[in-house]
Amino acid sequence: MKLAALQLRATGDRDETIRRAAELIDEAAAQGARVVLMPEFFAIPFVQPEPDPGYVKWAEPMDGPSNELCSRKSAEHGITIVSSFFEGTSVPGIYHNTSVTFVRGEARQVYRKSHLPFSNGFPEKFYFRPGQEPPSVVDAGDVKLGTIICYERHFPELSRTVALDGGEVLCVPVASASAPMKEVFQLELRAHAAFNQFFVICSNRVGLEGTKDYFGLSAVYGPDGTVLAQVPDGEEGVAVAEADVEGMRASRMRRPFFRDRRPELYGAIIEERTEGAK
């Protein structure tokens, strides 16, 4: 089967951005992609370094324009599309950074970003309430996949949670613009793939938005950390890669990392530690 990372330049014209996103989804589907990942908040500008209460004008309901596109294209092509949008709720002041997985047009999973930064020019804690559920896996028929969002790639516990839930593909929609992070960004994604023996799809924005220059590097990574396909730097486009899922499953038998885990030794990972505790 084939997996696709979509790379897009968002502007202040949501309708036009969605139109271009639709063209890129069609392009990925024409190349045979069965799973397509959208960038974080693909249809709208992302947050700027200074908190801005006016940014909430971009919030959408669950059936807003971002998800309408992904649901429609998922049904049209009979594929899985992982959306990402700024979720508004019926409660004043409560918003989420949310992904929705559509399988052949049906919303199968909603995941709300649970780890929110307020650093490095991304004051997300100002806008969003963190999600309260761990990432979980969706059976898309061809493959089982789970999603974590952007900043959450810094927390390996989350991707391991997806792997232990049976995940074979990890989807990571991101909005990453910090030039010094470019090398670490790719290192982290390769590590998630290799440690968990699964495929990783990462979709980033591209281009200048205010003070941020999004560097792209949207890609599909193999279970050994190899870059299987990547969108050229600075361009809109799709990276489509063949995913040998059966080979991945066989590799998990030859190198049985999950069999050899010792969970009883890992308690410190989930313990609350106070300063000075040993």
Rank of each mutant, 00 (worst) to 15 (best):
M1H: 00
K2S: 13
A5T: 00
R9G: 00
D13T: 01
D13Q: 02
R20M: 07
E23P: 09
L24S: 05
D26E: 09
D26L: 03
E27T: 06
A29P: 01
G32F: 03
A33M: 07
V36Q: 08
L37N: 00
L37G: 00
M38L: 09
F41C: 14
A43M: 01
F46Q: 13
E50S: 11
P51M: 10
P51R: 08
P53N: 11
K57Y: 09
W58D: 11
P61Q: 14
M62V: 14
P65N: 03
E68Y: 04
E68C: 02
L69A: 15
T89S: 12
P92I: 13
N97L: 07
N97M: 13
V103A: 05
G105F: 01
G105L: 04
E106R: 11
Q109P: 01
S114V: 07
H115Y: 05
F122P: 01
E124I: 01
K125E: 15
F126H: 10
R129V: 00
P130V: 12
Q132S: 15
E133Y: 02
P134K: 08
P134I: 09
P135W: 05
S136C: 15
G141E: 08
D142M: 15
K144Y: 09
L145M: 15
E152F: 04
R153Q: 15
F155L: 08
E157M: 14
L158N: 05
V162I: 12
D165M: 13
D165S: 14
L170R: 00
C171I: 00
V172H: 10
S176K: 06
Q186L: 11
Q186V: 10
L187S: 08
E188P: 02
L189H: 12
H192R: 02
A194G: 07
N196F: 01
F199M: 04
N204I: 06
R205I: 04
E209R: 03
T211Y: 10
Y214Q: 06
Y214T: 02
Y214E: 07
A219I: 04
P223W: 05
P223K: 11
D224T: 11
V227Q: 11
V227Y: 14
A229E: 10
Q230G: 11
P232A: 13
D244Y: 06
V245D: 03
V245E: 01
E246W: 13
E246K: 12
R255F: 12
P256L: 05
L265N: 05
R273E: 09
A277L: 06
K278Y: 08
